[in-house]
Structures are given as structure tokens and as C-alpha cells.
């Protein structure tokens, strides 16, 4: 009986230790991965594409008005 209790206690301790170790590895992985992702240098420059869909009259008018306001402000 005593052997059985010792065995059960050992198994319990082993499983608890195992869980802790897994959590630490997982947490380190996440932080390392985040640091790696942050180092990705994103600088692509794109010119307007010929494949872009045309704007409908309403949207084109709003866009033109906004650009015109900015142009006026730059002239001042």
C-alpha cells in the first residue's frame, strides 16, 4: 500500500512539474516569435495600378473636393 501511495505521489509530482515546464517553453516561444515578427522590415512602395476599378461619380466627387481643399490650403 505504501509503495502504491509513493508511486501515485511521484506520478502527481511528475505531471505537475511537466506542466510547468511546458508553460515556460510556450511563453518563451511567444515572446521570441513576437520579437522576430517585429524585425520584419515593411517598406513596399506601390504606384497606382492600371487594374484598379474606376470610381463612381459620387466617390470621385468627394475625393476631388477633399483634394481641392488640401490644394487651396497649400497655396495659402
Amino acid at each position: 500500500m505504501r509503495k502504491l501511495i509513493i508511486l501515485a505521489a511521484s506520478l502527481f509530482a511528475a505531471s505537475a512539474w511537466s506542466d510547468t515546464a511546458t508553460v515556460k517553453i510556450y511563453s518563451l516561444d511567444v515572446m521570441e516569435r513576437v520579437q522576430t515578427l517585429e524585425l520584419i522590415d515593411v517598406t513596399a512602395e506601390k504606384s497606382p495600378s492600371a487594374n484598379a476599378e474606376g470610381l463612381d461619380a459620387e466617390l470621385q466627387a468627394i475625393l476631388d473636393e477633399a483634394v481641392a481643399i488640401e490644394a487651396t490650403d497649400e497655396e495659402e
Binding site: E58, L59, I62, A66, I69, E70, D73, E74, E76
Partner: peptide
């Protein structure tokens, strides 16, 4: 000054359907 054009655009875009807002 750098917000005036954007202000106009946001106010005009308020009532538009989502797809039009996205495009604009």
C-alpha cells in the same frame, strides 16, 4: 491645414454604405 481635406472626406463618407466607405 493637414486635416481639412480629411475632415471633408470623413463627414461626406458618414452616410455611405460600408463598401463605398472602404473604397473612398
Amino acid at each position: 491645414r493637414y486635416y481639412r481635406g480629411l475632415r471633408h472626406l470623413l463627414l461626406r463618407a458618414e452616410g455611405l454604405p460600408p463598401k463605398k466607405q472602404i473604397t473612398l
